[in-house]
Simulated assay, not measured.
Amino acid sequence: MVKILVIEDNSDLREEMLLFLEEKQIQAIGAEDGVVGFELAQEFQPDLILCDLMMPKRDGYETLKALRNHSSTVHIPVVFLTALSERANMRKAMENGADDYLTKPFTLDELLNTIAACLNKENHYQSLAKIERERADALEQEIQLLKEINSAKENLLNKLIQEMSDPLTTINLALEMIDEASTEARRRLYLKTLKKEFSHQVQLINQATDIRKLLTPENIHLLRYFNISGESNSANETKL
Rank of each mutant, 00 (worst) to 15 (best):
K92E: 12
V78G: 01
L240C: 09
K153V: 00
Q207D: 11
E32N: 12
L146G: 06
M54S: 09
L194N: 05
N69G: 04
K130W: 07
I161S: 15
A174I: 13
V2F: 01
V202P: 00
C51M: 15
K57L: 15
I211C: 07
L156M: 10
T169R: 11
L67W: 03
Y225S: 02
D166I: 09
L128M: 15
M54V: 15
K196M: 10
A181C: 12
I211Y: 02
V35M: 05
V202K: 13
T169C: 08
G97Q: 01
L64R: 06
N150E: 09
A152C: 07
I131Q: 10
V36G: 02
Q45N: 12
K196H: 10
L222N: 05
V74M: 10
S72L: 14
L145M: 07
M54E: 12
S85G: 08
N233I: 02
P77L: 02
N120R: 13
R188M: 09
P56H: 03
F198T: 08
Y61H: 14
M17G: 03
S165F: 13
L84K: 13
N96W: 01
Q42G: 08
I4S: 05
I29V: 14
L21P: 02
E22M: 01
R133I: 06
K159F: 02
E15S: 11
D100A: 15
Q144C: 05
E15M: 09
E237H: 13
D109V: 11
R188F: 04
P56I: 08
A129L: 08
L139Y: 12
S85P: 00
K195D: 12
N96C: 08
L21Q: 02
Q141L: 10
T170M: 13
T103L: 01
Q201N: 11
R187L: 06
I211Q: 07
M55V: 08
N172H: 15
C51P: 03
Y61P: 01
E176C: 13
V2P: 00
E43M: 07
